[in-house]
Write a protein that binds this DNA or RNA. Sequence first.
DNA 1: ACGAGCGATACCTCACAGGTATCGATGGGT
DNA 2: ACCCATCGATACCTGTGAGGTATCGCTCGT
Lengths: 282, 282
Amino acid sequence: MDSRELRYFVAVAEELHFGRAAQRLGIAQPPLSRAIIRLERRLGAALLRRTSRSVTLTEAGAVLLREGRRALDALEAAERRAQRAARAATGRPSLVLVAKAAASSELLAKLLHAYAAEPGAIHVDVMLCRPGEQERLLRNGQADVAVLHRPFDETAGFDTEEILTEGQVAVLPAAHTLATRKDLHLKDLADLEDLPAPRWPGSDGAYPAGPGPEVQSHTQLLQLVSLGRALMVAPDSCRSQLRDDVVAVPVVDAPKVTTVIAWPPHSRSQAVADLVRTALRL
Amino acid sequence: MDSRELRYFVAVAEELHFGRAAQRLGIAQPPLSRAIIRLERRLGAALLRRTSRSVTLTEAGAVLLREGRRALDALEAAERRAQRAARAATGRPSLVLVAKAAASSELLAKLLHAYAAEPGAIHVDVMLCRPGEQERLLRNGQADVAVLHRPFDETAGFDTEEILTEGQVAVLPAAHTLATRKDLHLKDLADLEDLPAPRWPGSDGAYPAGPGPEVQSHTQLLQLVSLGRALMVAPDSCRSQLRDDVVAVPVVDAPKVTTVIAWPPHSRSQAVADLVRTALRL
DNA sequence: ACGAGCGATACCTCACAGGTATCGATGGGT
DNA sequence: ACCCATCGATACCTGTGAGGTATCGCTCGT
């Protein structure tokens, strides 16, 4: 199968609209229609059910979308990693580490500092991204290692090592009734009408329905918390980053959060191995 | 990057010879040369060092070969799985399980039998292949699940569950001096001049140098053993398949062999999940 | 009933993948 | 030492097919 055809199909399958998909791909709609028809004929399988009003995926189409995305990511990764290897062979080699923008920056600082002291350490570029994006960056070759948080981030398909497991705290405005409690349970937080849980955008950029405020970053959320507009539940280690108008109270029955370091399963890089070894010694 | 260009590069990188690679690809040599040059220009990186007598990989080329193979496997997998999904939606769905040709057939039989009794079980196609090939079949979508043996088979990049751990035995001609021993150590077998270890073909089909006979299958090997021409060390469970002119003696310090069931990490198939659950109950 | 929206079809054009012939360099054989 | 076999690169030609424009035919909302 040709990768261009697959890219076209993925665009249509994501947009579920030939016109928009064609626009995204920078081509006209007719060649796109033809390419998809040709692909379906080559595969001998219907991928899309079209009416003049809507496009939906068939079972085979859903499979091809999922697997095709991975294949395209792998292609991108091959390209990028080859380019990086070429640059590393001439200039200074480097390593890209990706973490969530709000990840335990203390731990990250310790890790980077400890690794820099290792013999043979190379430069580490730190890339901060939105939650849930690390997986993709690691798969498509934009990053070499990632710091993830289970159970929030998906680690399937990567090699991982655990660095740290911690409990979670509820972050509340200092003046709130619950702020003086020594600890809390999830049910204490479940239906606080004055402090709704915030809503994060999904992978498609859309917000789920619900009462809480829409947020895009932890800074935003933290501000909403101190304004008494939202509730935040986060790993213990976030305490070091809190302003003093908010209070952190342990949530004893919240799921434990494990910080893990993850890398593509066939990484042959000495630098990745060194970094992981360093992480395990923290 | 275009998948055709990548396929071309992989062919050249494997053959290290433009003429042979072109022949394998079914095209003439000049367009192949041009395609590689174009690819190198697009990437902005040299992939091959050519003289008029030899072709070698650069660092970047080696990376692109490794990662590119995976990407092409992923493409193939996407295509095949989509086709299978289409056929499953109309006719009878099925599952392809791959195992080494000589794998513990008793265990396999038990597994298949137990799974067939499950509610909602679908037809399982069993595919037998040569050692080391399962990984590729799983990655390129020809198989859905594999039975592997650690530490011989590579499991990196797959989700796995352990089914069984067992020791290993040396299989000897019944008349051999060591055949009456109750157990053996690896050093007893290390330099037996009358019974050399057999040589298996590598992933490139070539045999390593050495004294032992070249073999392609366990049947062959077993025959050589009973002829007193070779030594065989295999997991305990192979005993059930032995003829009575050979004897199995435990090798107490041989590495333990773990039979695992493996599947692609993002498999969404209910059937795979059922099969794995069944395997864990054995 | 009509028009807007959307995917499919018809038809044209040109870029590029691929073929043949040949060059230029290199190394082994006599 | 010379020549020829080997191998990748270059020059030049050709046909396929990817992409563009115009338009059709179906469906639904008003």
